[in-house]
Design a protein around this nucleic acid. Structure first.
Lengths: 351, 351
DNA sequence: TTTAGCAAACGACACAAGAGAGTGCTAAAT
DNA sequence: ATTTAGCACTCTCTTGTGTCGTTTGCTAAA
């Protein structure tokens, strides 16, 4: 589909068109290319090349005699073959470091923070698809007595606090029983995945779980896991995209934006689409106005995966986003988040 | 400034104009009023009254010979004297109840949830100004050892979990010392306000705090309180206001919207403005395009206070918002949130 | 005080004309 | 074979003109 082979001068011209369009967001004419760029040919020559590029589908004209604008295929080629990766500035790295410094071990807060960071640094919309919590392994459980029949239960897995909730109880629980329950859970279920624990709680009378405090423990865990808040997606900074709404084609861009809003609000569908589109690729992947992401017509998405448990994150922005910056920011933050989560892992296993 | 006295028919006409404009969002002509409303007079009579209303500043014309549109003074009078309060439907009450059912005791999550609820039920933007956390009283502190020099510290006050964070330590802490520290904090500082505790941690060597575990305890608390995340404001549903952007005057409404975005992003200023504008009034208060709220030109804000510790919440929407629904929703949710927080209070003091 | 009737105001829309920018094409030059 | 200069053409954008329909303000009569 996309050819790597393109005459050298045409590659330069395409690069210049995309670069300039991303910068100024207006159609690029043959003369502008000559002004900006030290090409030692005439505008007519450039026009001929532009003709070829248009025939090949890399650029197009909004109307018959205007400057050229990149097509999605043009952006695609640009990202794949012409992009200069721009490193993050020291200040930006510092911003990332600071954001993660006041780490609170709560996985949802971490996800939210990361999404915010992505959105803030790139100036577009950041999103994070959390790891599959079902596959994380239980580290420990904290039970806190609020009153006789009300407990605060905190569930900490290898990547942090996965769940915490007030759990009401039918029977009273004495202080000693709590210690006992915590002890039992800790010694028996440490290192077991949440999905396995959930299965266990569904059984009526599993072997060796007959005593009263033990049954209570299972009951509690079951309560907590049964109505787990299934949050599939965290996103921050949709409002950053509002600025672009003053575009020329105000009606269509507003339509696209509302489409985007609805797309991210259906969290499950969005997550599946991203996962599906990525396939089993690792590392950064860019989607440029890709039809594999329904509802995101007119937007580009840069994603990166992170361990553990198949997490993913990324940035949603306009087709003319600054791919260099966004790609490096996304990759960098994915790496930092991974480090953060994996270090929690090690930490808990070494205790 | 605002007179209660207005001839009966003019009151009816003003009410009809505002009602209809809120519903259809287009200038209201004298004939339309006759069609909708069983007034047994001619259109010329209505026009005369409309003239008086315009002279008094309640309505205005977008251009010299168009229908009339309410002014902010008109909305103001409408809210104060002409409004039919519409109760929440059973379904909506259920939605509120469900949202608060899976209560997790974490104050920030509760605030976020409430803001979301406000935005969702009204279809506009919900916001919550949290109680002044400094004035809450410590209930208990939980210390969780992650490894020798890293602790998860959770601070629970009378209204819920106020802070939780990983706290790194210079010296190792043994398991027994943790129990000791928790015990000391619990017995000494229970019921003391956070601001008092903060002051205590700033002193070098307060009386009776000399032993090692006690100093450690203070050190830890100091760490936690010193860099408290000062979150002043939670808001959700700004995107609900995007729909109205397709207005006639697209340029100005977009400008207003970006103004709003910047206004809510300066959390401290926004919070102060709301507090200042409310003064010491209690219960629901509506601001209709009020200049006391800078950056909110062109928007209306309905607010309500809630206990304890001077919290406030509300809804931001267009001037033509459905004041009846919004006022009752805001008051209702404020009441529910208050109940939730105050019940946490009682709970912890009775333990 | 209310009503009927009428001229005037103004937005909304369509259409036309001119300016400006950029292209495609052709023929000459390298 | 490739590049260049020149020119006609196309299309947008802006401005101006005119028509149509709605709604008003005003005046005079009820």
């Amino acid at each position: 589909m996309i050819e790597i082979e393109l005459p050298e001068r045409q590659r330069l011209i395409l690069k210049e068109i995309v670069d300039r369009y991303i910068r100024l967001r207006e159609p690029v004419s043959s003369r502008m290319i000559l002004e900006d760029y030290g090409l030692r040919v005439s505008s007519a020559t450039v026009r001929n090349d532009m003709n070829d590029l248009e025939a090949a589908g890399y650029i197009e004209k909004p109307y018959a005699s205007s400057g050229r604008v990149p097509t999605t295929k043009g952006y695609r080629f640009f990202v794949d073959w012409l992009l200069d990766l721009s490193e993050l500035t020291k200040k930006e790295r510092l911003e990332v470091a600071e954001a993660y410094e006041v780490h609170c071990l709560e996985i949802r807060e971490t996800m939210r923070q990361t999404a915010f960071l992505l959105g803030n640094i790139t100036g577009y919309t950041g999103f994070v698809i959390p790891p599959q919590m079902e596959e994380t392994r239980l580290d420990r459980v904290v039970l806190l007595r609020m009153d006789a029949r009300l407990f605060l239960m905190v569930l900490i897995s290898d990547i942090g606090v996965v769940e915490h909730r007030l759990v009401p109880l039918q029977e009273d629980l004495a202080q000693e029983e709590i210690a006992q329950i915590t002890q039992i859970i800790d010694s028996t279920l440490h290192g077991v995945t949440l999905s396995a624990i959930r299965e266990l709680t569904l059984k009526e009378n599993p072997d060796g779980w007959h005593e009263r405090p033990v049954r209570q423990a299972l009951l509690l865990l079951g309560r907590l896991l049964e109505r787990r808040s299934q949050k599939h997606l965290f996103y921050e900074g949709l409002l950053n995209l509002v600025d672009d709404l003053q575009e020329v084609d105000s009606e269509r861009s507003l339509e696209q934006f509302t489409g985007l809003i609805h797309a991210v609000q259906d969290e499950a569908a969005f997550t599946d689409a991203i996962r599906g589109a990525r396939g089993d690729r690792r590392g950064p992947v860019a989607f440029v106005g890709d039809p594999a992401l329904p509802g995101l017509e007119g937007y580009s998405v840069v994603t990166c995966d992170y361990r553990p448990h198949a997490g993913a994150l990324g940035v949603i922005g306009p087709l003319w986003m600054d791919y260099g910056r966004v790609l490096s920011a996304t990759t960098y933050i994915a790496h930092r988040l991974e480090t953060l989560l994996v270090s929690s892992c090690t930490q808990s296993s070494e205790r």
